[in-house]
């Protein structure tokens, strides 16, 4: 799977609209911004389709995984956008990372933890913000914002050395440093 995929997930109360651009997207941020609500909408639609009352608009199938079913779902999912909430502890494991690397799915991972086994871009770490009421004023409109904006000057103390790794290198440098 390549390129950017636009996703709209909504019911009568809330609407989430965002794009996923790389194979791993991280969502984190303050409590009560709607992360778990987004997950529950995806999960309900994945389970019941239109009968859930949830509307998902995307050119790819959106699926939710949990601790119990992630292996089975990933074994059959192809060209999907896979969503997982912070309770999926498997996300930290090398086995999960291997399955991610070997699949052609995109992954949206809700977590505040570092995932050292997964290569993801700092540009693809997002929070969710509510940008007001949508359309009929009964629905809240939520979108993703980039947590680390490269153009914004950041307050930080004196820095002696900045070490970076090319986005295509796949952790080679970090592995070498760790050794």
């Amino acid at each position: 799977m390549r390129g950017s995929h636009h996703v709209v997930v909504q019911n009568r109360r809330v609407r989430f609209e965002f794009s996923v651009r790389r194979n791993v997207t991280i969502v984190r941020g303050d409590s009560a911004t709607g992360k778990t609500t987004l997950m529950s909408l995806i999960e309900a639609y994945d389970r019941l389709g239109d009968a859930s009352g949830v509307e998902v608009v995307c050119d790819r199938r959106c699926v939710a995984i949990n601790n119990a079913n992630w292996e089975a779902v990933l074994a059959s999912a192809s060209s999907c956008i896979v969503f997982l909430d912070e309770d999926v502890s498997a996300a930290k494991t090398p086995e999960f990372a291997r399955r991610v690397r070997e699949s052609d799915n995109y992954y949206v991972v809700i977590t505040r933890e570092d995932l050292p086994n997964l290569p993801y871009s700092v540009d693809e770490i997002y929070g969710i913000h509510t940008s007001g009421k949508y359309a009929d004023l009964r629905r809240t409109y939520n979108s993703f914002y980039r947590i680390y904006e490269p153009d914004e000057p950041r307050e930080m103390g004196p820095v002696e050395t900045v070490i970076t790794e090319d986005s295509n290198s796949g952790h080679q440098f970090v592995k070498a440093v760790r050794c």
Binding site: R13, V14, D30, S31, A32, G34, T36, T37, E86, T130, T140
Partner: peptide, 15 residues
């Protein structure tokens, strides 16, 4: 204010 009347189970994970 976002979800209407909700149950305790729908509080945020943080709270």
């Amino acid at each position: 204010p976002f979800l209407g009347s909700i149950s305790v189970r729908e509080l945020s994970g943080g709270v």
